[in-house]
């Protein structure tokens, strides 16, 4: 199996409905023709993301299963990950799983903007932030005032 395809199919260990490729964590997969060695480059969503060790192990396991036992996973920090790197397919999967995807930022501002977040269940824009932080470093907790359901929101970064 193609190394790139094998790595791209690895799911995020904390948000298991999306792959690391769809989240924009996966930056590059390069295969050295002479040796067959695969070098994978990833970047964390947050500096302290505790899922990184699991992601590295999952990548190595996926490559080994696809016939690429010689693999190296490199972690880079620049350019810094942005929620703008989450693909459209990734956004759709997040929403389908009840996680409101982040608004597109489009620039490099670090001033947190809170735009209206639509409820991923009923689509209502009548929502309230319950907690600025959530179950993982990248999420905040919101509640819908229309259907009364709480939901996760992936914070724009």
């Amino acid at each position: 199996m193609n190394a790139r395809a094998a790595v791209a199919a690895v799911v995020d260990p904390e948000i298991r409905v999306v792959t690391i490729d769809e989240l924009g964590i996966l930056r590059a997969v390069e295969e050295e023709p002479a040796t067959g060695r695969v070098v994978v480059t990833i970047t964390p969503t947050y500096t302290g993301c505790p899922a990184m060790d699991v992601i590295r192990a999952d990548i190595r396991r996926a490559l080994a299963a696809a016939g690429h036992p010689d693999a190296e996973v490199r972690t880079v920090y620049a350019p810094a990950w942005s929620t703008d790197w989450i693909s459209d397919a990734g956004r759709a999967k997040l929403a389908a799983a009840g996680i409101a995807p982040p608004a597109r930022r489009g620039d490099d501002t670090v001033v947190p903007l809170t735009l209206a977040v639509r409820c991923p269940r009923c689509g209502s824009p009548e929502t309230t932030q319950v907690s600025r932080f959530g179950s993982t470093a990248c999420k905040a907790l919101w509640r819908c005032r229309s259907c009364a359901e709480p939901f996760d929101h992936l914070k724009a970064l």
């Binding site: 964390p44 947050y46 500096t47 302290g48 993301c49 505790p50 920090y77 319950v130 907690s131 600025r132 932080f133 959530g134 179950s135 470093a137 907790l141």
Partner: peptide, 19 residues
């Protein structure tokens, strides 16, 4: 909510500290 917030901020600080 604040318990979660402070733990998350601590995690960010730890991430920067490690780098």
């Amino acid at each position: 909510e604040e318990d979660i917030a402070l733990a998350n901020i601590a995690l960010d600080q730890l991430g920067a500290a490690r780098l």
